[in-house]
Computed example of a mutant assay.
Amino acid sequence: MADTYAKLLEDTIEIDAPTDRVWALVTDIPAMAKWSPQVVKSTVKGGVVTMGASFSNLNKQGLKRWPTGGKVVRFQPPTDATPGDFAFRIRENRTVWSFELEPTAAGGTRLTERRETPHGVSGLSLLLTKVVLGGQEPFTDELRRGIRQTLERIKAEAEA
Rank of each mutant, 00 (worst) to 15 (best):
residue 82 T to Y: 08
residue 77 P to K: 00
residue 80 D to T: 06
residue 130 K to H: 13
residue 97 W to G: 09
residue 36 S to E: 01
residue 147 I to R: 03
residue 130 K to Q: 15
residue 152 E to C: 00
residue 63 L to W: 13
residue 84 G to K: 07
residue 71 K to G: 04
residue 5 Y to I: 13
residue 8 L to R: 12
residue 11 D to L: 05
residue 140 T to G: 09
residue 140 T to Y: 07
residue 17 A to L: 05
residue 41 K to I: 10
residue 95 T to E: 15
residue 149 Q to W: 06
residue 142 E to P: 00
residue 54 S to V: 07
residue 8 L to V: 15
residue 31 A to K: 06
residue 124 L to T: 13
residue 36 S to K: 02
residue 2 A to C: 05
residue 119 H to P: 03
residue 26 V to N: 04
residue 79 T to D: 07
residue 71 K to W: 10
residue 19 T to S: 11
residue 129 T to K: 03
residue 66 W to R: 09
residue 71 K to V: 14
residue 150 T to S: 12
residue 66 W to N: 02
residue 144 R to W: 14
residue 12 T to Y: 10
residue 53 A to W: 05
residue 13 I to N: 11
residue 55 F to V: 07
residue 44 V to L: 01
residue 131 V to N: 04
residue 70 G to V: 06
residue 69 G to A: 09
residue 150 T to G: 05
residue 59 N to W: 09
residue 60 K to D: 15
residue 110 R to V: 08
residue 129 T to D: 11
residue 33 A to D: 13
residue 87 A to W: 09
residue 123 G to A: 12
residue 50 T to L: 07
residue 137 E to D: 13
residue 73 V to A: 01
residue 105 A to V: 11
residue 3 D to W: 04
residue 112 T to H: 12
residue 90 I to Y: 02
residue 91 R to Y: 14
residue 45 K to S: 14
residue 54 S to H: 11
residue 14 E to F: 06
residue 116 E to W: 05
residue 139 F to C: 06
residue 158 A to Y: 00
residue 111 L to K: 08
residue 89 R to P: 09
residue 42 S to C: 11
residue 71 K to A: 02
residue 134 G to R: 03
residue 108 G to T: 07
residue 131 V to I: 14
residue 139 F to H: 10
residue 138 P to S: 00
residue 4 T to K: 02
residue 52 G to A: 05
residue 106 A to I: 05
residue 148 R to H: 15
residue 34 K to T: 11
residue 56 S to D: 15
residue 30 P to V: 00
residue 144 R to S: 07
residue 86 F to M: 09
residue 99 F to D: 13
residue 3 D to Q: 04
residue 83 P to F: 08
residue 90 I to V: 01
residue 80 D to Q: 08
residue 124 L to Q: 09
residue 4 T to Y: 10
residue 140 T to M: 09
residue 96 V to S: 03
residue 74 R to G: 08
residue 150 T to D: 13
residue 7 K to M: 14
residue 102 E to P: 02
residue 34 K to S: 12
residue 59 N to M: 14
residue 153 R to A: 15
residue 55 F to G: 10
residue 92 E to F: 01
residue 36 S to N: 14
residue 15 I to T: 03
residue 52 G to S: 02
residue 107 G to W: 00
residue 61 Q to K: 11
residue 16 D to L: 06
residue 112 T to I: 12
residue 50 T to F: 03
residue 37 P to F: 01
residue 96 V to D: 08
residue 107 G to P: 03
residue 101 L to R: 06
residue 49 V to T: 15
residue 56 S to Q: 06
residue 10 E to P: 02
residue 154 I to C: 08
